[in-house]
């Protein structure tokens, strides 16, 4: 099916700023769906609040635009209700790791079959550039006009420690890798976390004098390296890209079915 058939054209042009990386993530996501050959009726997309969450308006699947931080809690309800569907949750810094941080770790702990795409632009774009739990020390934001003293989460380490059975990271510069990773994440049975470093030239770029969207994407090229590469050993400051965790673990809905089976024995 052509990519265009997966979108709701009536909602375009989208509201993201020019240069925003979120459109690249949307493109990669749609190509992944196309490669998997999923029908529109098999996919439910659940989002919370923020720039990333607007994706649910643009895709022609079953979509829910829910409360800030609660996307994974809503998604868990959808999955438990109709476990045969593919549940995808696009999320930003706030949804995944600030107001929704608790849901994030507990969804990982349960290993329920949901794919979370964490679009990390290191700032709250929609509300006007306040710092987020992914901004990091020393960063400037509208709520940190001099510099931020809060340290950031490492999404990959956090998801891994919390029990996610598929964990990966890439950037909007590495579009082919992104499509490939999203494809694998959706195929994976269990909670999958895909962190995508995505540029916000309007707030993060401007506040921190990084330059244009192109400059920001060049940094993704220069400051990242494939997981386990020689370059990483020589320069530990490089951020690794790739799949960090991919393991078979009992999936929550399947385990729940086992309880039902056991409870129904003898009836």
């Amino acid at each position: 099916m052509p990519i265009k058939d997966y979108i709701r054209e009536r909602y375009f042009p989208h509201l993201w700023c020019s240069g925003c990386g979120h459109g690249i993530v949307l493109g990669s996501f749609l190509r992944a769906i196309q490669q998997l050959g999923l029908s529109k009726n098999e996919i439910v997309m659940v989002s919370g609040i923020g720039c990333s969450s607007r994706i649910t308006g643009y895709v022609d699947f079953h979509t829910l635009h829910t409360l800030h931080g609660r996307a994974l809690a809503f998604a868990t309800g959808v999955k438990m209700g109709l476990p045969e569907l593919n549940i995808i949750v696009p999320m930003g810094d706030g949804d995944a790791l600030a107001i929704g941080g608790n849901h994030f770790i507990h969804t990982a702990r349960r290993n329920i079959d949901i794919t979370a795409i964490v679009m990390n632009n290191r700032i709250y774009g929609m509300t006007g550039g306040q710092f987020s739990p992914l901004s990091g020390y020393g960063i400037k934001a509208t709520t940190a006009p001099y510099f931020n003293i809060d340290h950031d989460f490492d999404v990959v380490e956090l998801a891994t420690a919390a029990g996610a059975s598929f964990v990966a990271r890439t950037t909007t510069y590495h579009e082919k890798q992104l499509t490939n990773i999203i494809t694998k994440a959706i195929q994976h049975v269990g909670f999958s976390v895909v962190e995508v470093l995505t540029q916000c030239p309007t707030y993060f770029g401007r506040k921190n004098d990084i330059g244009s969207a192109v400059d920001m994407m060049k940094l993704y090229k220069e400051k990242t390296t494939p997981r386990g590469s020689k370059a990483k050993k020589e320069n530990p400051d490089l951020i690794e890209r790739g799949i960090f965790v991919q393991k078979e673990m009992p999936e929550y809905c399947n385990e729940y079915n086992k309880i039902i089976e056991k409870a129904m024995k003898g009836h």
Binding site: G69, M126, T143, Y146
Partner: peptide, 30 residues
């Protein structure tokens, strides 16, 4: 942060950090 309240706290964040106010500003997670 939540629209349309953000301008209030953005101004106060600036005052707290540049010393206009002798106050602490905490931007928390919810």
């Amino acid at each position: 942060p939540i629209t349309p309240q953000t301008h209030i706290v953005e101004a106060l964040a600036e005052y707290c950090e540049n010393g206009t106010m002798d106050a602490r500003f905490l931007c928390v997670e919810s």
